[in-house]
Amino acid sequence: MAGRLAPFLAVPLAILVFLLPGWLGGVHGAFTVIAIMAIAAYGLDIVVSDLGEVSLAHTVFFAAGAYATGLLATRLGANGWLTLAGALAAGTLIALVLGLITLALREFVFSLVTYAATVVAAAVAHNWDVLGGSDGVSGIPTLDLPLGPLRLGATNDVQLWPFAFGLLLLTLYAVRQFRRSRLGAMAMMVHLNPRLATMSGIDVRRVRLGVFVLSAPFSAVAGWLYAYQRAYVGPDLFETYFLVLMLTAVVLVGRRRLLAPLIGTALIIGQERFLSFGGDINAIILGGALVLALAVLPGGLDGLFRRAFARTAQPAPHSDRRPVAQS
């Protein structure tokens, strides 16, 4: 019911969100970071929600995008288009290699190996001079996207916000299209019933590899924008913070809901930016949210609301007007 209305609601909602940081008194920085981390989380979301595997390597794709951007921009003076291509190539290539390595692995072992990959990548970033070692890459120039006679670019968060927002919309569209695509349907089948998938002639390994590799560019492109937003890239990108942030964003609200990772990211970063209690307590809140979401609320916040509504608002079908009404 809400599915048919969604496209008409989406446009005013998008405009509203786009104008929101200005109305709230110029909080473009926080909104930009929310958009960036949400895009990164969507990469993980496809793998977790659709493929049913928990990848702990998506911080690597995110960092790969950021590092490629930082290195290309500072060492070669590359513009935004080149760094974008570099970030996408770096993330996708690493995902392809890792995907081929982990092709036969499932569930816990898959997660363990992807975690191992993250640890190895972190050690390499810390120690390899080409990547700037533990100092990282600093002094990244501002975003610059020459388009024929036009010179698009962003020198501060206010100017960066439209890019982040546009990229976020693009990501939402891509994820939605993915879930409606053949590959998306096959991924769900492989997830829910691998035997039936095999019997139906689906090449399970190919689907798994396809979805895994497809998920990487999302996280990598987020890294691309993050490098410009922070003007610095360093091995701190491999810290568990980003991993826990992405995982929490994906599981907090609910699985296979288009807006869930975005709302999850907004809740987490919103708390950190506007309701911060200092780094230590923020870490406790973030970790606690992850524990709660999985151990106490199996369906995430969405499941909680559904149960609450099912109990209290039984006779009122209009209670179904949540913005997350479509898949």
Binding site: F108, T240, L243, L247, A283, I284, G287, A289, L290
Partner: peptide, 14 residues
Amino acid sequence: MIVTLGFGHMMRGI
């Protein structure tokens, strides 16, 4: 696995 990762993050904050 994910829950224990969350616990780890909490313990670091604590």
